[in-house]
């Protein structure tokens, strides 16, 4: 059976791509952000995942307003990044895992999530930047990916409760996968931020810290919020929190918080990073 090694949630601000390109990890502005990542990188190196299942939001690279799925699952053998028009360099292609993708799709549809399936799909900065932060150094990616996008561009958005249930369903799919892969679940975006209008620059640190705390032991607490609540409390683009909720919900049973980091600002955004491990993985290691 497959092993779910844990989940990592991380911000994906485009400016991180420029900072990586220019090697600004030690720059005084960037250092407090990048300093959060080595513990997550070390955990990944020890957990040795073969596959990353990634919950994220496409910002118009693959899906535009002509056709905007609420949830879409990649089922391609390869995923490419492309010019998003805002000047960050593209990254090497990712290998897919079509058999696992279709197993996830079959489980989701059986659980009444009517997802869009994509045998061709471009992946944007919301996937590539967290990958680059967690597997630094460039070259070929050491994991295959299963990308899962959630509409965050055009309201009505799904609710946090729906995101939570989506994550649970993906978790059931992974737990029932007969392969022997080691699987990590990623959730990208957030935390509080607003890019547009007179309220741009909005940051809600108490709300962010409450969410990071709740995600460890009581993630269901966050499902009482609506998309409206998230816009009010976390900013117009703070609804990306839903990818964190989905990733956390994919883990079976109780979890241990391995690492957490929070820094304001990266550009307009409160940047967060968390690493979770299922208690079952901790017990298995001790045995």
């Amino acid at each position: 059976m497959a092993t779910i090694v844990g989940a990592v949630t991380s911000s994906h601000v485009p400016a991180i791509g420029r900072a990586l390109e220019k090697g600004l990890q030690q720059d005084p502005y960037w250092q407090p952000f990048f300093a959060g990542y080595p513990p997550a990188q070390r955990w990944i190196a020890q957990a040795k995942p073969d596959v990353a299942v990634v919950f994220y939001q496409d910002h118009g690279l693959n899906f535009f307003l002509d056709a905007m799925p609420t949830f879409a699952v990649g089922a391609a053998a390869e995923y490419r990044n492309a010019d998003e028009g805002w000047g960050i360099p593209t990254v090497a292609p990712f290998r897919g895992d079509p058999a696992l993708s279709w197993h996830v799709i079959e489980t989701l549809v059986a659980d009444e999530f009517d997802v869009t399936t994509c045998q061709r799909m471009l992946v944007d900065h919301a996937l590539t930047l967290p990958m680059a932060l967690l597997w630094p150094g460039g070259g070929a990616w050491p994991v295959r990916i299963v990308p899962i996008t959630m509409n965050h561009v055009q309201h009505p958005l799904p609710s946090p409760r729906r995101a939570y249930r989506l994550g649970q369903s993906v978790g059931r799919a992974l737990a029932s996968w007969p392969g022997d892969e080691r699987i990590v679940v990623l959730g990208t975006g957030g935390l509080s931020h607003q890019l547009d209008g007179r309220r741009a620059g909005f940051i809600n640190k108490p709300f962010d810290l409450m969410c990071m705390d709740a995600l460890v032991d009581e993630p269901e607490k966050l499902t009482r919020y609506s998309a409206l609540d998230l816009v009010r409390e976390a900013g117009a683009q703070g609804t990306e929190l839903m990818a964190w909720i989905a990733a956390r919900a994919a883990l079976p049973g109780r979890v241990r918080k391995v690492h957490a980091h929070y820094h304001v600002p990266v550009s307009n955004t409160a940047a967060g990073l968390m690493v979770f491990e299922p208690e079952s993985a901790v017990l298995a290691r001790a045995a």
């Binding site: 909005f202 940051i203 600002p265």
Partner: peptide
């Protein structure tokens, strides 16, 4: 121009003032 530059424009602040506001913790809730 960066996202931060656009955000500053939309708030009516100078880019420098906006950047300083963000470094100081952002616009409070």
């Amino acid at each position: 121009h960066s996202f931060q530059n656009l955000a500053a424009k939309m708030t009516g602040m100078s880019e420098e003032a906006y950047r300083s506001m963000m470094i100081a913790g952002g616009r409070p809730a």
